[in-house]
Write a protein that binds this DNA or RNA. Sequence first.
DNA 1: AAATAAATTAATCAAATGATTAAAAATATT
DNA 2: AATATTTTTAATCATTTGATTAATTTATTT
Lengths: 210, 210
Amino acid sequence: MAKSKEAKSLDTTTEEKIKAAARVVFHKKGFAATRTRDIAEEAGINLALLNYYFRSKEKLFDIIMFETLFGFMQNMAMVLNDEKSTLEKKVEMIAYNYIDFITKEPNVPIFMLSELRNNAGRLLEKLPIKQLIMTSAFFRQHQEAVAKGKITEPNPLHFLMNILSLVIFPFIAQPLLQGISGLNETQFNKLMQERKKMIPVWIKAMMKAK
Amino acid sequence: MAKSKEAKSLDTTTEEKIKAAARVVFHKKGFAATRTRDIAEEAGINLALLNYYFRSKEKLFDIIMFETLFGFMQNMAMVLNDEKSTLEKKVEMIAYNYIDFITKEPNVPIFMLSELRNNAGRLLEKLPIKQLIMTSAFFRQHQEAVAKGKITEPNPLHFLMNILSLVIFPFIAQPLLQGISGLNETQFNKLMQERKKMIPVWIKAMMKAK
DNA sequence: AAATAAATTAATCAAATGATTAAAAATATT
DNA sequence: AATATTTTTAATCATTTGATTAATTTATTT
């Protein structure tokens, strides 16, 4: 190895530069539309280095995809499995965390969900996501709330879908929504910030509806 | 022309076969991932015919994209602009129509929104969608309901985003949701059918929340 | 400093892919 | 029936694109 194993500040490694570039380009254009040359250019490296470090476009993609999925799920899993926080607090946390996260990484949701559509099996099998969510404190607390009559909708999947829908969808539909409304990006982001406070209120109201 | 202009049952024309095939493949894989050979094979025609009838992959795509966008918006525009129906009825109509439509065409939302992300300007300029929605009876009725204190959230965009989110997002996230829940496609579709009735109830409750 | 190993580059390959062409087949016109 | 027009096909082109190779440069080890 030409570089000492420990130091080299890790983020300026050639390998890391390529990964960072791959993340940017894959997230923006998806697997099919990105050319390895795009990544090389974004990283400022010779194209051959991409294959030298990662063997193939597909292997590099798998790494980026896994890290993206993992990063996205990690936060959710943490929140949903927190035994100390209430159900209401969890809704707040998800709204806050994800609206901030997606505002910074607006391409991640549609990237993830587009690519999952081709390959859900292969891409999800590395993550124990089913176990993590279905046995979470979140689901247990939901069932308790249903038992106590505090929540009318008995299916926790609807509950989870509703939260994620209200949080994530507007970002996915952003170009369409801006086309409809005429808002610019700044105004749109302001709208999303408003939703951080509103979504928990809305969720609370709708889950008591009957 | 080898075929009489009027008759020829329109759907069996070579041109129509190509368009139908292009619709299937583009919707499933998006522009970048579809090869003109995929379309030719799906249509059961010689590859050269695609260029003979449509000049280029891109021109064919533009036609499919326009028709897809138009088809998707048409229904919404109709419902939102209906002066006779109440606001509540409009919410019901959107939930019913779109859940049925997307169940039949599950790739359309993510196709549309993915492709719009590359090219919103060019692709939306042919549709007068802003005008159509911002001046609709739906928006006016919403403002009236706000004025009467029947709805607390004053921004009609939040109202529209919430409806579309609850209706469309679960389909976009279907592979992930099935991965989380372990449901098969039939069970998933049943869940979506439940939402046809629930979404209007939820929307009603949440828009009165404060 | 010499020898060895690792990283980087320019050039090139092979396959895939959008598109065209020239000939053949099918259809319409006279 | 003869001619003209349109549609379809097989073959081919030119470019793009993922990947490799062989040579060069840089770093590490002895």
